[in-house]
């Protein structure tokens, strides 16, 4: 197992290198450039050239790339042309916000989706099954952006139950050893802070988690229906086991195999797809950061951010494969 993980981690190196080359080329193929973005359309040719020389953009592209990779290996992602901050420092601020949101959204999807799918399968073609199909279809076809706005309007603006924007109340000062606010608040034993951070998480997490919720529920239902027809479930019932034991030990554990895969894929999508939700709730995460970077042709930030996404998604997939193997002895033991 350990060897498998190490091998997969090593495979990441060529993958990330490939991604970085493509990125490097694509980013530079965008019309305009950081100099024009900073100086505006009417900048003089001179001042544009001056800035491009300053940024090293006058060099041949392979020279630029060589320098980029050399710095990358030393953990230097470059400097933002807009904020003049090291990209790595900004990344450390931004990615915990996105990961925290994606994680909360996924938790919401899993905690509701798995029991819902299970119950739908048990009541196959019954009211609950049809109702959950109906709700899932709505959930899947509802644009995230619109759902986010709707939730914000109803629960934050009209009812005022939950905050409208941000990760934490602006008047609250909490320490940020990790920038995962929930973790920060727990680490510093700031229980009021925990509540405040949770309140801020609820609406964005629901908005972002609704599609995965619908998908997880549908996949769970299908998987449970499959497993219920398996001979080994009949064997378990023939032993006289209690229905709850049959369901937990024999049905759910097997049904989780496909569900885990879907959860992993969805998590990858969530990480990269949080942009719209982040915009609605002014969530200071990767999404808004990337949008800004694209607008300002902030090459280093775009490259660093997307490379980091690629790493995150690859690691999520690895986690899926590991948990799949953990659940399935046939795979675990063949490694």
């Amino acid at each position: 197992m350990l060897r498998f993980v190490v091998r997969r981690l090593l495979q990441l190196i060529p993958i990330l290198l490939g991604v970085s080359i493509l990125l490097f080329a694509f980013v530079r193929a965008l019309p305009g450039g950081p100099a024009i973005a900073l100086l505006g359309e009417r900048a003089t040719e001179e001042s544009v050239e001056r800035i491009e020389t300053e940024l090293g953009l006058d060099q041949p592209i392979y020279v630029q790339y060589g320098r980029y990779v050399r710095n990358l290996v030393q953990g230097d992602l470059g400097t933002s042309t807009r904020s003049r901050q090291p990209v790595l420092e900004e990344l450390k601020q931004k990615f915990p916000a996105t990961v925290e949101l994606a994680f909360a959204a996924m938790l919401f999807a899993i905690i509701l989706g798995i029991p819902l799918g299970f119950l739908a399968a048990k009541r196959y073609l019954g009211f609950l099954d049809n109702a959950s199909l109906f709700v899932s279809l709505i959930g899947i076809s509802f644009p995230v952006f619109f759902l986010a706005l709707l939730l914000k309007y109803v629960f934050a603006i009209k009812l005022g139950w939950l905050p409208t924007v941000g990760r934490v109340d602006v008047t609250r000062s909490i320490e940020h050893p990790t920038n995962f606010y929930l973790l920060d608040a727990v680490l510093t034993r700031d229980w009021e802070g925990v509540v405040d951070v949770l309140k801020h998480l609820v609406l964005p997490a629901i908005a972002l988690g609704t599609i995965p919720l619908a998908i997880v529920a549908r996949i769970t239902r299908a998987a449970v229906l499959d497993v219920l027809n398996e001979d080994y479930v009949r064997t378990a019932r023939a032993k006289g086991l209690d229905p709850s034991v049959v369901d937990r030990r024999h049905v759910m554990r097997n049904a989780m195999l496909p569900v885990v895969t879907v959860i992993g894929l969805q998590t990858g999508l969530l990480l990269t797809g949080a942009v719209l939700t982040e915009t609605v709730f002014a969530w200071p995460g990767m999404g808004s950061w990337m949008l800004e970077a694209i607008r300002f042709r902030d090459y280093a930030v775009i490259q660093g951010g997307i490379l980091f996404f690629a790493l995150l998604v690859s690691l999520t997939n690895l986690a899926v494969d590991v948990s799949y193997a953990y659940l399935n002895p046939k795979i675990r033991l063949s490694r």
Binding site: A238, K239, G240, R249, N254
Partner: peptide, 30 residues
């Protein structure tokens, strides 16, 4: 009664055992 007074063996041994539980677990549960 099931599994205690009346027990059953099924046709297909390839599919009648749970693939993700050990033989020991499945034997001891009854």
């Amino acid at each position: 009664v099931r599994g205690k007074d009346i027990a059953m063996i099924f046709q297909d041994p390839m599919t009648s055992l749970n693939p993700i539980l050990t033989i020991g677990r499945q034997l001891t549960e009854s």
